[in-house]
Simulated assay, not measured.
Amino acid sequence: MENQPNNIPKPNPRNTISLEVAKQWAKEWRDDEASYNKYNQCRAFNIPKKDLIEVLAEGVESIRAYIGVEKIDVKGKQSIFTEKLMIVGVDKNGKDMISSSDGLTLDDGKGEIFDFSEPCPHVCDEGSPINGG
């Protein structure tokens, strides 16, 4: 499990990421979707209970999950790509509970974008019929 992308420390211990990073990952997914999925086997995402509870803040009526790809350049080696599931709270009006005046950064106290998922393969139930077991 050495050097797995999910073992790379996040800048925030609560597993939140910036809006800029979330937008970059989602763009990577859209840009690379046709060719990316030919070579990668992401089937599901494992989401820890404690993290899912964290996203269910006051005022959250539901959650929305966005799909993205994190690209990690490893010096002297081919880039590593890891599928990401980014989750945000959604209010009673169906709006993402994030606020950004500049389109790049989150305004303080106006919502969070969570990155706490681990893709399968790596964190899988190999015997699950949903996973082809």
Rank of each mutant, 00 (worst) to 15 (best):
S100L: 13
N46Q: 12
I53A: 08
G109L: 07
F45P: 01
S35L: 12
P5F: 03
S101R: 09
A65W: 08
G68D: 03
L106F: 11
K84W: 11
I17W: 02
A34H: 07
D107K: 09
I17V: 15
T105C: 07
N6V: 11
K49A: 11
A34C: 00
E70T: 09
K110A: 13
N93R: 09
N6W: 15
D102E: 05
K10G: 06
T16P: 01
S100E: 08
S18Q: 03
S99K: 15
G133I: 10
K110I: 08
I47K: 01
I72T: 15
N37F: 09
R43A: 09
L106W: 03
A34M: 05
I63S: 01
W29D: 07
S128F: 01
I17F: 03
S101N: 12
D115N: 15
K27D: 12
K38G: 00
N12P: 04
V60E: 00
N12S: 12
W29H: 12
M1H: 07
A65I: 14
N6G: 02
D96Y: 04
I53H: 04
V123F: 13
L52M: 15
A26R: 14
F45Q: 05
Q24H: 04
R43D: 06
Y66S: 09
I47A: 09
S100V: 10
I53K: 13
D91F: 08
E58V: 05
A22R: 03
V69N: 05
W29I: 00
K110P: 13
I98S: 06
P121L: 07
E33Y: 13
S128Y: 06
S100H: 08
P121G: 01
D96N: 11
I98R: 05
N15P: 01
D73A: 14
S79A: 15
Y39A: 14
A26W: 00
I63V: 15
Q4P: 00
A44F: 05
N40R: 14
P48K: 02
F45K: 02
V74D: 10
A34R: 10
E61P: 00
N7H: 09
N46E: 13
T105I: 10
E58T: 09
V21I: 05
I72K: 14
S35V: 12
A34W: 02
L106S: 06
E33L: 06
Q24C: 04
L85M: 15
S18K: 00
G109F: 05
P5Y: 01
V123R: 14
S62H: 10
P11Q: 02
G103S: 10
N3G: 02
C124D: 10
V69S: 01
S35P: 00
E54C: 02
V21P: 00
N12G: 06
Y36T: 02
T16R: 04
G127H: 11
N7S: 11
G111E: 05
D96K: 00
E61V: 10
P11A: 06
K110M: 15
G59F: 02
